[in-house]
Design a protein around this nucleic acid. Sequence first.
DNA 1: GGTGAAAAGAGGGTTCT
DNA 2: AGAACCCTCTTTTCACC
Lengths: 150, 150
Amino acid sequence: MLRMNTLDQRIISQLLGNARASYAEIGKVVGLSAPAVKRRVDRLLDSGVLRGFTAVVDPQALGWGTEAFVELHCRGNVSPTRIRAHVESLPEVAAAYTVSGAADAIIHLRAADIHHLESALERLRALDIVESTVSTVVLSTLLERPPVPQ
Amino acid sequence: MLRMNTLDQRIISQLLGNARASYAEIGKVVGLSAPAVKRRVDRLLDSGVLRGFTAVVDPQALGWGTEAFVELHCRGNVSPTRIRAHVESLPEVAAAYTVSGAADAIIHLRAADIHHLESALERLRALDIVESTVSTVVLSTLLERPPVPQ
DNA sequence: GGTGAAAAGAGGGTTCT
DNA sequence: AGAACCCTCTTTTCACC
């Protein structure tokens, strides 16, 4: 595990805001030269604190505007690893979490439309670890923030 | 609304995989010159299909490893806009959705630890639109995929 | 959408503290 | 160790075709 300081956090903060910012731009904000920023970014990538860089797209625009949250109730005791192995076979799974409470997991589904969502749900319910599901369809996305603030 | 073709989708796909890829690299994959790629990316940014570029960080590594999903039940009829206005005042809100079913919204909370999460939940419940909440604490993240596949 | 040129940035080695 | 400086090579970003 890496020990990070304020400088690293501020660099990450800049990259969260704009992953295509140049090292010089970032350096100007955090008070470092461009090569110094690059070496820190490389180190953060190596250590796994930074996993990579991605584009933020409008799901609606790409035709993936229909979402749902599904509480997963499994048959008997199923390990998180097995749940993961099963749910990652569905491309519509945007995220999956094991949780406290009655449900075993919460699945975030993302699909093109209601029919696509229904099809994904059917395939999810057909997994042999699944006993029952409780779905909540998303009507609108009020807010979505990048993974980590500041 | 913008009409997009396969070329745009492939460019977006490349940027989803690596937002810091050079235009020349992207162009080599999709069969375009670097300036042509840049023109399309600029147009996608202008039109809002591409919202920007961000870093993918390990929340654990930055000390934001504790998450929860909260079903929000509001007093009477509250518009999505008002819900949004209220919940975005909490920095711990990672995402918020209006949903079908009994709850009015689902809030995705992200905090440093259980105590931080508890504090965020208290502030959420203190909002005057909120009648009651049902929280589900995330035990582990099994899977998290970028916003849009392919 | 491609081409070519000027400006900006990346990346590596060296020096300084 | 880590950051700044410098130099070369690549990339970006225009112009124009």
